[in-house]
């Protein structure tokens, strides 16, 4: 089994390479360059800068020298944050994004799963309709809308009340500064998890083996927890894999709205500034998270479903 997962990790290497390849050339296809600021740079300075960052070398040469540095674990210098390497920026931003993401994920599972499952257990009742309806709303309203609404409510309307919350900024991770962004981040995930777990629980309840368990005279609780739940969790795990990778590598929208120094915000600014190396670095980290998350999902499948065996 472990050799299977080792192989999966190895297969991740060419995947990462493909990501690097596409990302590198896509970035260069975008018009403009890292030094096209608002204030024009004198041509001599620009020439010096381009020479310093090897931007005048042939593209393939730039690509291979980037790849070479990458293999040594060096993401290169940032073009915009002049005194920082991309590795340093990621090392600064990633923990912030992961902390926020993990909190949001934890909250989403803690709220979404019980919501979905209780809705399934009381199918076609007011509670079920409420959960289904609210989760639909949670899915369709984008985070940039919920973010603004919460800022408006807690930052403006409730200003000077005990409910006032900072509308943005990080303040070194003060608890109050985390509440709104984590909430905004968690809301759509609560909605997704509730919907998925509701649907899969309803399906599990209709399964023949649940009927068998009931025919054995087992109490309802036992039927649900011992026989139905594991099957119902499979689709949730499937969803959580890529979702975790996504949420941990920082939401660009949420981090931008709330001015959080996570890597999601670096990604947005990097893309706007044509900060080639920064965008590449964040993308590679994100891709690695997705690959690892999928492997972890497959491991959890092995625990939930004895039919899944890896060799």
């Amino acid at each position: 089994m472990w050799s299977y997962f080792a192989r999966r990790l190895l297969i991740g290497v060419p995947t990462l390479f493909a990501v690097v390849l596409f990302c590198f050339f896509l970035m260069r296809l975008a018009p403009g360059g890292p030094f096209d600021g608002e204030a024009p740079v004198p041509p001599e300075v620009l020439a010096n800068l381009r020479a310093r960052y090897h931007l005048d070398d042939p593209l393939w040469q730039q690509f291979f020298s980037y790849l070479g540095n990458l293999l040594r674990g060096d993401f290169g210098p940032s073009f915009k944050y002049k005194d920082f390497t991309v590795t340093e920026l990621i090392a600064q931003g990633l923990p912030v994004s992961i902390e926020n993401g993990l909190s949001a994920l934890f909250i989403a599972i803690l709220i979404g799963l019980p919501l979905g499952i209780t809705a399934a257990l009381s199918q076609n009742t007011a509670r079920d309709y409420a959960v289904s309806g609210l989760s639909m709303i949670g899915i369709v309203i984008p985070t940039f809308v919920t973010g603004q609404i919460l800022i408006l409510a807690f930052g403006v309307w409730l200003r000077c009340t005990p409910f006032q919350l900072p509308a943005g900024g990080w303040n070194d991770g003060a608890f109050a500064n985390r509440i709104l962004p984590v909430t905004v981040l968690a809301l759509p995930f609560i909605a997704y998890i509730a919907r998925i777990s509701r649907a899969s629980m309803i399906e599990a309840l209709r399964a023949n083996f649940v009927r068998t368990a009931r025919a054995k005279g087992l109490p309802y609780r036992t039927v649900i927890l011992r026989h139905a739940l594991k099957t119902a969790l499979m689709p949730v795990v499937t969803f959580l894999g890529p979702a975790t990778a996504f949420i941990l590598t920082g939401s660009m929208v949420v981090e931008t709205i709330f001015q959080i120094p996570g890597i999601g915000r670096y990604f947005v600014q990097g893309a706007l500034n044509r900060d080639y190396t920064l965008v590449m670095g964040v993308t590679i980290v994100g891709a690695a998270f997705v690959i690892i998350a999928n492997i972890i999902v497959d491991m959890i499948y092995g625990v939930l479903d004895p039919k899944v065996r890896y060799e």
Binding site: V210, R211, A213, A215, G217, T231, P306
Partner: peptide
């Protein structure tokens, strides 16, 4: 639940799906 599976048992058809897979 005190009767089912105890004094009154049902044996289902479709054995492929009648047992809990996990």
């Amino acid at each position: 639940n005190t009767i089912r599976g105890n004094k009154l048992a049902m044996v289902f058809q479709d054995p492929m799906t009648s047992l809990t897979p996990h």
